[in-house]
């Protein structure tokens, strides 16, 4: 008997087509949202999708490389402030230029921060990322003549697709339709790109580093370099999220650079499940709803949100997606 090496040798061949099978109906569903829900609902979901991009980037480090960053607010902030500063100093109004600026800005910042951080792991890595993000936060705070200090910087409605779609007219309509679709397209592109990255040979190397740093080095993976690239990609995704977030919010303040926002990114990801690809996406969207409703219903929203989140995490230790996958597996096994 010759061994069926072909069958053995394609462990992931099926998984991309299966992912597509899951993704297609979800994409269709997301596409009809502005047509069937009130504008406020679409805008709320747009916020969720933006956070999902940020969390997806964050999880390349946590879930795939095994590095817990407590400083991703910095890159979100860099994305947001890149846009705001382009408005203030360059009078740019094109969303594509904003995204480009945010990518350049976050590449520069993550490249430098990465050099400092990737030599460390665990708590040291976490503390370093936290400290560096707090440095940026205090800069945004102190250099008020540039950043507007606590007042922040306003960002008007941008033009989309090289000026094809402008923000003239009702802002709510623009945000809930044109901008929603813009965010959705970028979200789709980011999910697809991240899917390729984590399933690439590079993505496998990151997972190897996560599982066993020493052995990774002894199969020839130069761990600092790979961590650094992961750090860069991760930060740029989160920076992109920051850039997409500012026009929605209309304003950026130093708050988004504060470590508490890094904490929210951590929370979203753990809530959704950092062991699964879709975990941070689901977690970000759910977290966004929870937070919005908690803030809307009570002044004690932090308390309520905290209790709800702790309950969720304790009852679903592998996150929403991880638990759903387990349930699905059990269901499939119980069928003949």
């Amino acid at each position: 008997m010759s061994a069926p090496t072909r069958v053995l040798g394609q462990p992931r061949a099926g998984s991309s087509s299966r992912a597509l099978l899951v993704a297609a109906p979800i994409a269709a569903l997301l596409a009809v949202v502005p047509l069937v829900v009130p504008p406020y609902g679409a805008i709320l979901l747009a916020y969720g999708l933006v956070m999902a991009i940020g969390a997806l980037g964050f999880n390349l480090l946590l879930g795939y490389t095994g590095l817990l960053s407590f400083g991703h607010s910095a890159y979100f902030g860099v994305g947001a402030y890149s846009v705001a500063l382009m408005v203030k100093y360059l009078r740019v109004g094109s969303m594509e230029l904003f995204l480009l600026g945010a990518i350049v800005g976050s590449v520069i910042v993550t490249a430098v921060f990465g050099i400092v951080c990737v030599r460390y792991t665990r708590i040291f890595f976490g503390i370093l990322t936290l400290a560096l993000s707090q440095v940026l936060w205090s800069l945004a705070f102190k250099f008020f003549w540039v950043t507007g200090g606590t007042d922040g910087l306003r960002v008007p409605t941008p033009s989309l697709f090289g000026g094809l779609v402008t923000g003239a007219g009702d802002k709510t309509v623009f945000m809930s339709h044109a901008y929603y679709y813009y965010v959705l397209i970028l979200f789709g592109a980011c999910v697809a790109l991240m899917w390729v990255i984590v399933n690439s040979p590079f993505g496998m190397a990151l997972q190897a580093i996560r599982d066993n740093e020493t052995r990774a080095e002894f199969v020839g993976v130069r761990i600092w370099r790979y961590r650094w690239v992961a750090f860069l990609v991760s930060g740029v995704f989160t920076g992109l999220a920051g850039a997409l977030w500012v026009p929605l919010n209309g304003l950026t303040t130093p708050d988004i650079m504060h470590w508490t926002f890094s904490g929210e990114l951590v929370f979203m990801t753990v809530l959704g499940g950092f062991r699964s690809f879709a975990g941070p996406v689901v977690g970000a969207i759910v977290f966004n709803y929870l937070k919005t409703y908690a803030v809307g219903y009570t002044v004690y929203w932090q308390l309520v949100l905290g209790v709800v989140l702790v309950t969720l995490v304790l009852s679903l230790p592998t996150g929403i997606v991880g638990s759903a996958e387990k349930l699905l597996a059990r269901f499939q096994r119980s069928r003949p």
Partner: peptide, 28 residues
Amino acid sequence: FDQLTALDNVALTIFSREGKTTHLATFA
């Protein structure tokens, strides 16, 4: 690499040997 399959453990090593772990835009 405990969270990877036995096959992945070996395949990753081959990717590394071949200098292919720098490829981040192709499916392994």
